[in-house]
Structure formats: C-alpha cells, structure tokens
Design a protein around this nucleic acid. Structure first.
Lengths: 344, 344
DNA sequence: CGGTTTTTGAGGTACGTACCTCAACCCCGT
DNA sequence: ACGGGGTTGAGGTACGTACCTCAAAAACCG
C-alpha cells in the first residue's frame, strides 16, 4: 500500500492538519516543521494521490488551444485530434477547447490572451509566430497563474526548452536536414536543381527547415543546386504561376521540397509539370491529400509530426505543470517521422 | 459539471443503491429497471468517474510483462522503459512488473502463465513466439479474468487485431517493405546482391519482414538479388563466420539488411568487410549501439519502433480492458519509424 | 387472499485528500 | 507573570463512487 497523508503525519510526528498545511503551501508553519515533514516525505516515499486530491477539490482542468484560422488540412487534423483527446481524457477531469485567431495579427492574439482568466482556463497551448507582443502576453499569463506552452510553430529559445516541454513540436532544423538527406540520397549522383516551396519565409519554422536542408545538401551533395525559396503566401493562383515560371527557367529541376504544411496547391502544379518525368518530391505533414499523393507516387517521402501526439503531449505537459509534476521527457519528444507508401 | 451517480439516480427515477447495482452488474435488478437506468445514462451523458471508483474500492492495477531472457540491447531498452513507466504512472494506481523466461521453451512459458492468479495480476503483456501451448495458456488466463495482450513478437491473427489492441507492435510485413524501399532507393540503379541477416527465420516477425522486403525489391528493383537469409542463432562466432563466407562467395554485395533486433555482432563483421567501400546497411531497432553506428555512417538507416511507446501502450491497453473502456486506437498504433543521423 | 420471494430504497462507512473552524499550545517581549 | 501573536492539533465536511445492511415495497404464486 502506498503511504497516505495519515502515514505521513505519523512519520513526521505532526497532525494531519499540519501535513495539509505543508503539502498545500499554506502559511503559518514554522520552517523547522516544514523541514520535518519534507524529510518524512522522502523517508517514507510519500506520493500525493492526485486523483483523490482533484476529487476533493472537485477540480477539473480547462485547457485552450490557440490556433490560426487557416483552411489548412493539417490544422483540420489538429482540430480532429483535439476533439478526440476530449473524449479520451473525458474521465480524466480535463477539457480542451479551441480558439482560432488570424495568425497574421500579433496584437489580436496578445489581446485575446489578455482576456483569459485563471478561473476559466488553466493552461494555453499557443500556435502562433513569435512576436514581442505574444511573448509578453505569455509572460503575463504565467504571472496570472495560467500555464503556457508554445505549440508547433512558436519560438524555441534554446535546446533545453525542448527538453523542459517549453515547446511542443519537432526540431525544424533537424526536419529540414532529414528532408535534405532524403533528397540527396534519392537523387543519388544525379546532378540538378532543387526547388524549395514555402508559404512564407518569415516564419521561423520555414527558415529553420530551409537551413537544415541546405546544410545537408551543401555538405554531402555539392552537385545539387538549391534554388531560392518560392513563397506562395497561401494564394493558389500565385503559387501556380511562380512555380510554372521557375520550371520554365530551370528545365533541370530534379527535386522539389515543399516545406510548408499546405502541400496541396504546389503539388498539383508540380505534378502537372512532371508528366512522365522523374522528380523527387518531398513534402511535410500527413493529410488525406498528402497521403493519397504518397500512394500514387506523386510524393516520394513525407516528413511528418503526429498531430495526435502533439495534442496529447500539449495536454499532458500543461496538466503536469498545473500539478507541479515532472513530465516523462521521452514521451513528450515529438518525433520527426518519415513516411513512405510502405509505412503509412 | 459532469453528472454524478446522484444525478443519474434522479434522472432514472431510482435510488442510488439501484444505480450502483446496475453500474456494477449486481444481481437482483429487474431488466426493466436496468433499461431505465441505461437510458438515463445515455440521456444525461453519465460517465463514471474512474478515479473516484478506484479510490473507493482502493484498487490498484498490477500488470506483468513476460519477456525473453536474452542479453539483447533492445530488451534492455524495454526493461528501462518499463521501470520508467512505473515511476510515471506511479500516481495512477498501477504497477508494472517483469518476468523473464527463456523464450525457446513454450512449455515453461505456458506453465508460468498457469501460475498467475487474478488476485495478484490484472493483466499480462506476453512477448513470446506463438505456439499452441502459449495460445492455450493465454485463453485460460482470460477465462480466469486476467487480461492479456501479445507484445511485439506475438501472433497477429488478423489485421483487425491490431486495431483492437490485441497485438502491440509494428506490422512487420510493412517494416520489411519499408526496409526494402529504402534499400532500393538508396541503391538507386546500382545492380548487385543484397544480404539479409536474421537471428532465426523460425520467428514469425522475421518471416514477415523478409516477405515484405522481398516484395518491394522484387516489384521495383529487379536488378537487385536478395540472397537467402543468414541465420545467426545469436552466436557471435557463427555469425562472423557465415557472413565472411557469404561475402567471399559474393563480392558484389551492395546492400545488407539486418532484420533481427540484435544488430551488433553482424554489423561488426560487415563493417570490417566493407573497409572503404560503399554499402547500404539497414538495421532494426534503436539501441545505443545502432545509434552510434548510424552517426558514424556504418548504418544508413534504422527501422525502429519506440520501446517507450510499446510499453506505455501495453499498459494503457491492459488498463482500458480492466476498466472495460475503449482505447484511443490512433494513440496505440505503433509507428514504423525510420531513423537517419539527422532525425535521431 | 395470504405468504413468499424478488426488487428497491435509505442510510451508513470507506477510500485519500482538501479545506474549514476552533481550541490549545508555545514562545516572545514586557 | 501576562498578553498577544504565531503555530499546531482535533475534528468536521466534502468530493464521487463502492459496498454493505436492513427494512420497505412490489411482484409473484398458489
């Protein structure tokens, strides 16, 4: 049997009331007594029964995902996984909600974050480009006692942030490098140009992916030339036009790397331009569309992160923070997955 | 607020006692009343608070991993993850234990399983080659009220078993196919022989991997010849000898696929024989050794399954079975991961 | 119809923790 | 020695569910 507060009280030579005071950081306990209780905790290996605690305080956790408002299929996957997580964690006293805001406007995001109140929300997973406004808003949220994490596209300050669960998502530099490795190996000894297509190169994740990609190609595949990134800005007509123009200027494009999560429009154009030919296409994120493209060999490989894992990881990390608990780092590390038709 | 048993009683027009009788399948309730309560459950969306229930019955779950007794590094990883899971799920009223048995002896495994008593164990994850004895023992365990799952190397009866959480592990046919795809693409247009090294081809997982591998190579890379599988039987000296012999007979070996989880010994020999040359080597499972080999380019790609995920998935599935709950299928699907130096 | 059996209700205790109140205690300075 | 503050203990209630007992009510049988 695991020791209870009663056992702890006995072991520390104090009353249940004092144990409660120490465990819940209440005032009016002498330092000396606190120390005695802490030592007893170590000694008997007391672990607070969080289920019972939550039951007693009839606490349930409310978490919020702050997401952009695009029509992106990857985003749709995320939304689906959030509602899935809601039913799965249903018996776990926690609920996840979603708020969508135009990501282009950092002020609006910051303003929204200011409206959140600790009584209504315990934690927020924020998927938004880094900006001073958002960073400040995050800091103020934390001061108000609302936990926050950067979700997928936020800022990583340092590698340790990843370990500490500050940031939930893949290491985009490594993802780009992985794409580069695949491109290089799949284009084995075949010289040519590589086209890189992004939604925008203003986002940090795009930059990092491009950087990782270039590093690998530059170091190990010097006979490949990576063209400047094309930016689609999410506009279908423009995307089609600039890709066609680039192909016209560069007849020796051997590979295409689509590094934004919306592969749909660029891929359609690329496929049309590749009729019969043989080009290596690498894209990001698994969606119904990219999955089908992989199976029909329009895409050679997908670099993905599991949206279900992202969502659950965010919830587990926020939850652990609320409980002032450690998370299991290895479980929360989001893997850079490589998908072929064979391991879908 | 989520509805409680009290709300349920009111909604069904019965007493708390009757609600309790229905919820816990006790006898002495008219069918008609059971129906009324069930309808009320649907109507108000009652979900039993499992934490509170476990608290009340002071139940804690005890699960057992039945593992082979090899010195395998992959097994060591599993053991580490089991103890890790123990601390992570510590506040969750469940404990995982390990029993190791020589996997070669199905009788011993079956006998051991017979000794398990429902009072001491709630569920078992069995990692053992399929055999009639083990299968029968599993069935009897289930009759005694002990949940079971096949772990990593057990038998998959049908594809639906995977979905239902009957089997925890990767689809080995797909894993082999993935290895085949990588081998084919990495050896782009380069004709030659491919060496396949296994511990034994009597295990179902090895057979399936080989099958998947051959299918892809046969279909898409006809200029590659896959040699008959070498069986190491886990003996270092023998392994070294037969690999050297095979290399001597086949100077044009362009690729090596090590499909057993112990890549260490075969890889050492292969590396020695490849001095300076260029061969594509693909192996399975991430261990400190294979990881180092990947970084030092002795291995070109690793096909892996996350041991931490395997362990947690087994525990979650056993737990859900005990609670007669659904599992979240997408969370329990074990991914076939592809590792390069870039996405370690 | 009465008697028997089955079904139901009311109420209690328990699980481990949180949070509250009130009284008792100790220690300090004067 | 006294008052007053800080500190501690004792005991209660609550959370949602399980499990128990006993009595009351209902259904069934001949």
């Amino acid at each position: 049997m695991r020791p209870t507060t009663k056992d702890l009280a006995k072991a520390a030579g104090v009353s249940l009331a004092t144990v409660d005071r120490v465990l819940n950081d209440r005032t009016g306990v002498r330092d000396d007594t606190v120390r005695r209780v802490s030592q007893a905790i170590e000694k008997i290996g007391f672990i607070r029964n969080i289920s019972a605690a939550n039951l007693a305080r009839s606490k349930s956790y409310r978490f919020l995902f702050l997401l952009p408002r695009t029509g992106d299929q990857f985003l749709a996957e995320l939304l689906a996984k959030i509602s899935e997580a809601n039913s799965a964690f249903g018996s776990d006293a926690m609920r996840a909600e979603v708020a969508q805001i135009h990501e282009s406007d950092p002020h609006q995001i910051a303003n929204f974050l200011e409206t959140l109140h600790p009584d209504a929300v315990d934690g927020v997973a924020i998927m938004a480009p880094e900006s001073p406004q958002v960073r400040d808003a995050k800091r103020r949220l934390e001061q108000r006692g609302i936990e926050t994490v950067s979700f997928i596209s936020g800022q990583i300050r340092a590698a340790t942030d990843l370990a500490a669960g500050e940031f939930i998502g893949i290491d985009n530099h490594a993802a780009g490098a992985t794409a580069g490795r695949l491109m290089g190996r799949f284009l084995d000894r075949q010289a040519g140009k590589v086209l890189v297509i992004a939604e925008t190169m203003h986002a940090r994740d795009s930059l990092e992916r491009r950087l990782g990609f270039d590093e690998v190609i530059g170091a190990d595949y010097p006979y490949l030339t990576v063209l400047p990134s094309l930016e689609t800005h999410g506009e279908a007509e423009r995307t089609d036009r600039i890709i066609r123009a680039t192909f016209a200027r560069n007849p020796d494009i051997a590979g295409v790397y689509i590094l934004s999560s919306e592969a749909r429009v660029p891929l359609q154009t690329v496929t049309q331009l590749t009729q019969g030919g043989h080009r290596v296409v690498i894209a990001h994120e698994r969606t119904p569309f990219t999955e089908a493209a992989l199976l029909s060999r329009q895409i050679d490989a997908l670099i993905t992160q599991d949206p279900g894992h992202l969502v659950r990881s965010a919830l587990r990390i926020l939850r652990a923070r609320c409980d002032r608990r450690e998370v299991l780092a290895s479980q929360e590390k989001i893997r850079i997955e490589i998908l072929f038709a064979e391991n879908l």
